[in-house]
Structures are given as structure tokens and as C-alpha cells.
Amino acid sequence: MDFRQLERFLAVVDHGGFHRAAEVLYVAQPSLSQSIKQLERELGEALFHRAGRGVVLTEAGRELVGPARAAVHALGLAVESVGAVRGLRSGRLEITAMPSQAIAPLAGVISRFTAYYPGVRVVVRAGATADQVVEAVRTGRTELGLLAGVRLADRPGVGLHPVARQRFVVVAPAAGPFRTGARVGPADLSGLRVIAGQTGTGMRAVVDELIESGAGLTIAVETEHREAILPMVLAGSGIAVLTESWREISERSGAVVADLDPPFHLEVAYASHADGLGPAARAFLQLATDREGRSVG
């Protein structure tokens, strides 16, 4: 059993099949299949059941996932530590981020990081909810995550590093009931239709809290595609509750942005793997927390 076999096994797990895993790894599918067959022969157990074009883990396969991630993570740290003597002139850093946080604060930190370390490739993966981001970091799929929530509790297996606090705002069409800069309370939202994010996102938590507090809001649209919310607002499908990071682009697009009163806030934090970080991830996290807040946890 070698590192490459485990890496390929995890790629099949994470991408749900051999075809997509081969594309991601840039290897021929027969080569990937042969690596998995060799691993199964060495272990004496089948790791996957074939199900149409996809695969399902066997019991033995499920048992291997955790140790395989730990082994790949540990070896990756070792390789990166050796490479650190070159002053981070090369390497790869993977980060899983929620969509809004990928705009701010992540984009700004990446810009500064790549200016310092132009030889390190930064790969940003998508996590729709805080739970998805934490799971990606905890299981070793990525070293760092960027997540947000109305309340951020401690998560087993990861360290949290708060970096920002963003205020929620109401985004409405120009022909809507508010003017830019107005202060909007729950009573002002009565009878309005809202475009909401999926359960597990900060924006959805605020909408749910407003409804529970007596605001007469009706969820007209629920979407996982955050980039579609502003166009739907502009088209008149409803209002939206978004973070302050959307203010500038919303106003430039012709929408009206009003402040919630009383305010709701989104807590933003980086998540790191509990077993340690490689040099590139450490440098990135140091840059992010030095600039935007104090690292804790």
C-alpha cells in the first residue's frame, strides 16, 4: 500500500466514481481502476460496490476512509515541511469556503498571499453551509476552511479562528418599499416576499429568526445559488437579507440597501485541521488573522 493508492481511493470516494476522479487527478481511468484493484488485493477486501456509473463504499471501504485521510494528511504535512526550506516557492493550498465569504474576506487575503508567495497555487473549493466546510477540514479534504454563521460554536476536530463580523442588510428592488440607508425593523417587513438561502446558511437563519419574531415575511424563493439572489431581487421576485459585503455590488446594480434594526450579525472564521497545518496553510492563516483579527482556538 502506498500514498498514491490511498490518494486515488479518496478521490473516488470524494467524487462519487472513477470517471470524475480520473479527470480530477489527470490520470487515465484504467490506471485509476488498476490502482484501486491492487489496493483491494493487498487488503483482501472489496472497497466499492459498482452502482451504475457511480460507486458505493463497502463496509471495508467505509472503515478505510478515516485512516486513509489521516495518512494522506500526515504525509502531506511532511512533504510540505520539507518544501518549506525553499521558502514556499512552490506548492498547493486548498481552502473550502462558503460563497459569500469567498468574496469577502477570502478574495482579499488570497490577493495578498499570492503577492508574497506567487509560486503557491491556491485552490478554492465550495462549501454551501458551515457544516460542509467543517466536514471538509475535519476529514482532511482541505487544510483550511472559511465559514460563517449567526452563532459559531466550537466544532470537534477543527480549530476556529474568528476574523470578521458582518452586519446583515435588506436588499430590495428600486421600486420597492425602502430607500437606501433606511433603518428597517420587523414590522416594516410585514407582507413582503423574501428570497432565502438554504437551511444551514447565515442568511437563512436571520430570515427564520425574523419570521419567528413576528415579521410577516413569506419565503417566495429558496435557492442554493447565491449568485442568483441579486438578479432575482432586481427582477422583482422579492427582497433578500444579505451580508454587508453585498452592499456595494447591490447598489451599483441599482438595488436599494437598507439596514436591519435591531441589527443581526454574521460571525466569520477560518477553520483549521486539529492535527496541524503545513507551511503554506500556516502562512495563509497568519496573514488572514494578522490583518483581520486575532487567531484563537
Score class of each variant (00 low, 15 high):
A172I: 04
E209Y: 00
A175L: 06
G181Y: 03
T129G: 03
T199H: 07
R151H: 13
T114Q: 14
G149H: 05
G83R: 07
G91Y: 08
A126H: 15
V206K: 04
T139Y: 05
P177I: 09
V72K: 00
R125A: 07
R92C: 07
Q198W: 00
P173R: 10
T129N: 07
A115G: 07
G91L: 02
A74K: 00
T129F: 11
T142V: 14
G83N: 02
V123H: 11
G76I: 08
A128H: 12
G181R: 03
M203V: 05
R183A: 09
G185S: 14
A174N: 06
R86E: 15
A107V: 02
G108E: 15
A174Q: 12
R69K: 14
I110W: 11
G119V: 03
A136D: 15
P156D: 14
Q166F: 09
M98K: 04
A78P: 00
A172R: 06
L144N: 01
S190M: 01
T129R: 05
G91R: 05
R138I: 13
G191P: 03
V72L: 10
R141F: 09
V82Q: 15
T142S: 15
I103Q: 10
G197T: 11
A148F: 00
E143V: 01
A136G: 06
P162A: 10
M98D: 01
R89I: 10
G185C: 06
R69S: 11
L146H: 06
R165M: 08
F113S: 00
A128S: 13
A130G: 01
V79G: 02
V79C: 06
T199V: 12
T142K: 01
G145L: 11
A70I: 12
F178L: 08
I103H: 10
G159P: 00
A172N: 08
R141S: 04
S90N: 12
G87H: 14
A128I: 13
R112L: 15
R69D: 06
A126L: 12
V85R: 13
L147D: 10
V150W: 00
L88V: 08
R183Q: 14
V170T: 07
R121V: 13
P99L: 03
G145E: 09
T201D: 08
V133N: 10
A175G: 12
G176V: 06
R138K: 14
